[in-house]
Computed example of a mutant assay.
Amino acid sequence: MPMATESGISQRPRATINNLSQDVLLLILRDVFNGAQRQRAVGWDSVQIASGAPHDDRNPEHPSAEYLACVCPAWRQAMSCASVFWAQLVIWTGMDPTPLSRIRQYLCWSRNQPLEVYVMRRYDPSGSMEDQTERARVKAVVELLLPHVRRWRVLCMKLLHSRSLPLPRIDLVGHAEKLVRLRLDHTVDDAVAFSATDVPQPEVFDTPRVPLHVWHPLP
């Protein structure tokens, strides 16, 4: 509806991107998201996983749908309808960790998409090399991910403590027939060895497309 101004000339309200229909908005958001992925084609493997400290996110970020979804509720609502945005999950631990409720949303919105999951430690400006909460946090994240094990395509973790990493056939179980990359990395090697009497009973972790040597060994 036109609005009156001091000069008496009516003026229409300024239109914004949020005035677009959801279909058109989704096309724009998808184009922006795909463009960001092309520009950052170097990916996590060469920037975060293979080099640099796991608690340092000052390196170029891998494009995540959350960087668009957090702009405003309308964008998040629109993006929740398109599973392609949520096929790649970047989950932060450490400072300002990704809320578990948000991870549940991501998994729901991804529907049946094969999943690429990156669990990373956010940079701590204090330089602390100790986090008593990391192990429990990662355990809770893994519990959310396990029901979707058949959809895992990539699972990469880079954490502070080696004791925080989940153990294949102990914590990571099930049939991961789509998994092509499994990388479990850490900065501080502080895993506690199991005694002969308290080694957990191994379960099945079927990863037919992943060589056994990339698995994180039992401590």
Results as ranks from 00 to 15, higher is better:
Trp152Asp: 00
Gln77Ala: 14
Ser64Cys: 14
Gly174Trp: 00
Met157Thr: 07
Pro125Met: 07
Val188His: 01
His213Gly: 01
Leu182Ala: 09
Leu155Ile: 04
Leu146Thr: 13
Pro63Leu: 05
Pro147Gln: 07
Leu179Met: 10
Pro60Asp: 11
Lys139Phe: 08
Ala65Arg: 06
Thr93Ala: 12
Ala15Trp: 05
Ile170Trp: 02
Ser64Gln: 11
Pro73Ile: 00
Asn18Ala: 13
Pro208Gly: 11
Ser83Lys: 12
Ser21Leu: 05
Gln48Glu: 12
Leu182Gly: 10
Val188Arg: 11
Val90Thr: 15
Pro219Glu: 08
Ala176Glu: 06
Leu182Ile: 10
Leu107Trp: 02
Asn19Gly: 13
Cys70His: 12
Val32His: 08
Trp44Asp: 13
Met120Trp: 04
Glu177Cys: 10
Phe33Asp: 09
Pro219Ser: 08
Val154Asp: 03
Gln88Glu: 14
Arg122Tyr: 07
Gly43Thr: 12
Arg111Asn: 09
Leu184Gly: 03
Ala78Asn: 03
Val84Gln: 14
Leu172Phe: 03
Glu130Cys: 07
Arg111Glu: 12
Gln113Thr: 11
Arg111Gln: 15
Ile49Ala: 15
Arg58Pro: 00
Trp86Lys: 08
Val149Ser: 05
Ala50Gly: 15
Val32Ala: 15
Glu143Phe: 03
Ala36Met: 14
Trp44Leu: 10
Asp198Thr: 12
Arg38Met: 05
Arg150Pro: 00
Met3Thr: 13
Asp56Ile: 02
Ala196Met: 09
Val149Ala: 10
Ile28Leu: 10
Gly43Lys: 10
Leu146Pro: 00
Thr133Tyr: 13
Met95Cys: 10
Val210Pro: 00
Arg76Val: 02
Arg153Thr: 04
Trp109Ala: 11
Tyr123Gly: 05
Leu184Phe: 04
Trp75Ser: 02
Ala176His: 05
Ala53Tyr: 09
Asn19His: 15
Gly174Leu: 04
Pro202Thr: 08
Pro2Lys: 13
Val42Ala: 15
Phe205Arg: 01
Arg163Gln: 11
Trp75Ile: 14
Asp206Lys: 03
Val117Thr: 10
Arg102Gly: 02
Pro208Phe: 10
Arg122Met: 03
His62Gln: 12
Glu143Val: 07
Ile170Asn: 06
Arg14Gly: 02
Val192Ser: 12
Asn112Ala: 12
Arg104Gly: 02
Val204Cys: 04
Ser21Ile: 05
Leu115Glu: 05
Glu143Asp: 15
Asp57Ala: 08
Val42Gly: 09
Pro97Gln: 09
Val210Tyr: 02
Thr16Pro: 00
Leu167Asp: 08
Glu143Arg: 15
Gln201Leu: 08
Glu134Asp: 05
Tyr67Pro: 00
Ile49Glu: 12
Ala74Gly: 04
Ser10Tyr: 15
Met129Trp: 11
Ser101Val: 01
